[in-house]
Structure formats: C-alpha cells, structure tokens
C-alpha cells in the first residue's frame, strides 16, 4: 500500500484517500458543442506513466488534492493543492536523498 503525502496532514495510507480520476480541462459549457463536451466527459489520456489527477483526502482533512502519479509504478511524483504550486513532494526516500521538488 502506497502512502500519499497530504499537504495538510502529512503521509497517510492511500486507503484514506478517494480517487477522483484524471484532471481534464472542461470546455466552456456555455459554448460547448456535443463532440468536445463528450470527449471531455468520456475520454481519458490513460497514459502508462505520469498523469495528473484529482484525489480527495476522504478520511482526513477532506481537501481535494492534485496528484501527479506514475501509473506503471504508482510512484507519487508530486502532490499539491488545487490551483496552487506544489506544496509537497513524495519523492522522499529512506536513503536520505535530498527531497526534490519542494516549493
């Protein structure tokens, strides 16, 4: 079980979090036509590698988080608050390597 480092609560088991799926850009609903709107609704990039997605710290602070994750290894590359700059990084290690991607 991986852990996610919540920017508010610190590292917690992934079972505390709810997965919200890939973050995709929503077309303007006022002007959207069916084709791009349904592409937004139904299509995922679904990459084998890094992806940006939304998670909710459901059993913790109840904040929505932006998570960058490698879908092949489940390595967490970065976690940040929605709209903000990266506030923490999970590229921590037990080896004492300097943690990267700190703000």
């Amino acid at each position: 079980m991986i852990t996610l480092s919540c920017p508010w609560c610190g590292p917690r088991n992934v079972t505390e979090f709810a997965y919200g799926g890939e973050s995709g850009a929503r077309p303007d609903p006022a002007t959207a036509t069916p084709q791009p709107w349904r592409r937004y609704l139904y299509t995922n990039a679904n990459p084998a590698g890094p992806v940006t997605e939304t998670w909710l710290h459901r059993a913790g602070c109840r904040r929505y988080l932006v998570v960058e994750r490698d879908t092949t290894t489940n390595e967490i590359l970065a976690i940040r608050r929605p709209g903000g700059a990266p506030s923490t990084s999970a590229r921590h290690a037990t080896t004492g390597r300097a943690t990267e991607q700190r703000p």
Binding site: M1, V14, T15, N46, A48, T71, T72, T73, N74
Partner: peptide
C-alpha cells in the same frame, strides 16, 4: 481496484 493503474502487483488490502 479503487484507482487506475497499469501495475499488476496486487495489494494486501
């Protein structure tokens, strides 16, 4: 599984 992944390692939970 509760989240998308290409990993087939399986989990204890």
């Amino acid at each position: 599984d509760p989240f998308a992944s290409y990993s087939t390692r399986g989990s204890l939970e």
